[in-house]
């Protein structure tokens, strides 16, 4: 690329016509508690952008989980309910049934969705509740300090499997979305990531589709985001991305698992 193509002065840059990107208004101006390199912040931003672009701020009820995203309600300027650990899909079920014209989504970690809340998740999906589930799969319990999650990979070390996950002892990594796609109530099940600019764009599209399905009463949509937990994995942010590509993606391959048009 030749230099003259991007020769812009500061004066030019701040002109409104040259604006190419800005923080969504729905994102509050507060520091996030997420660790450097964590995927949560990026996914929050995508959710905010989609709500804003759909013009749905006044019609959206978000359900926050127990997990690192418990404070999601501090970051997105929408109405929220904070659920007990794992119960978000039950809350979302009632909100959507009682207020069918609302955009209702849950935002859950792998422990929340696939361990303590498995029953609530499976049954909300099986009933085909028209809710969107944003599922952050980082293979670990971030909030409580890095214990084993249902999605922890075989051999992966955590605080409660310090010698690596032994499937004889702890069972196998739970591919919960593979199960959810078999349920007749689900409409759209996809597995995405946010580790590159291209991946972020695709993940945003997926979230948009899930939110539109909620508004069009099309049944349950689940957007799994295979995510990093640099702190929990004890890696730096760049290493975490590399580790995820090398180890998480083979176990949790990206792409649509189900898309009923």
């Amino acid at each position: 690329m030749k230099n003259e193509e991007v020769r812009m002065t500061t004066k030019d840059i701040i002109k409104p016509e040259n604006l190419v990107y800005q923080k969504p208004e729905i994102m509050n101006d507060v520091p996030m508690h997420y660790c450097p390199g964590c995927s949560h912040g990026v996914v929050h931003k995508l959710v905010a952008e989609v709500i804003e672009e759909m013009g749905m701020q006044d019609k959206t009820v978000g359900i926050a989980p127990v997990g690192c995203a418990v404070f999601a309600y501090n970051y997105l300027d929408i109405d929220w309910e904070e659920a007990a650990h794992g119960r978000a899909p039950a809350l979302a079920t009632a909100v959507k049934r009682l207020r069918p014209d609302r955009l209702v989504f849950t935002y859950q970690g792998d422990g929340d969705l696939a361990a303590i809340g498995t029953a609530e998740t499976v049954h909300a999906c099986n009933r085909g509740e028209s809710i969107a589930i944003i599922f952050i799969n980082n293979g670990i319990y971030g909030m409580t300090g890095g214990q084993m999650a249902p999605t922890t990979l075989e051999g992966m070390k955590t605080a409660t499997c310090p010698y690596g996950r032994d499937v004889k002892l702890n069972g196998y990594p739970l591919k919960i979305t593979n199960i959810l796609k078999e349920l007749e109530g689900t409409r759209y099940i996809t597995r995405q990531s946010v580790h590159t600019a291209a991946a972020v764009r695709k993940a945003k599209k997926a979230i948009r589709k899930a939110f539109e399905n909620s508004m069009e009463d099309k049944g349950t949509s689940v957007v799994e985001i295979v995510s990093t937990c640099a702190s929990g994995w004890k890696l730096d942010p760049v290493q975490a991305n590399e580790w995820m590509e090398k180890n998480m993606f083979p176990a949790y391959p990206l792409g649509d698992l189900k898309n009923v048009e």
Binding site: R87, A90, L91, A92, A94, L98
Partner: peptide
């Protein structure tokens, strides 16, 4: 009025929480 058989009492009471949180009589 919405009537729903939940998958468990745990789910049912959390549905009550969800509904009550939106100001509904549940």
């Amino acid at each position: 009025m919405v009537v729903l058989q939940a998958e468990s009492e745990v789910a049912a009471i959390n549905m009550v929480y969800g509904g009550a949180g939106t100001g509904k009589k549940v």
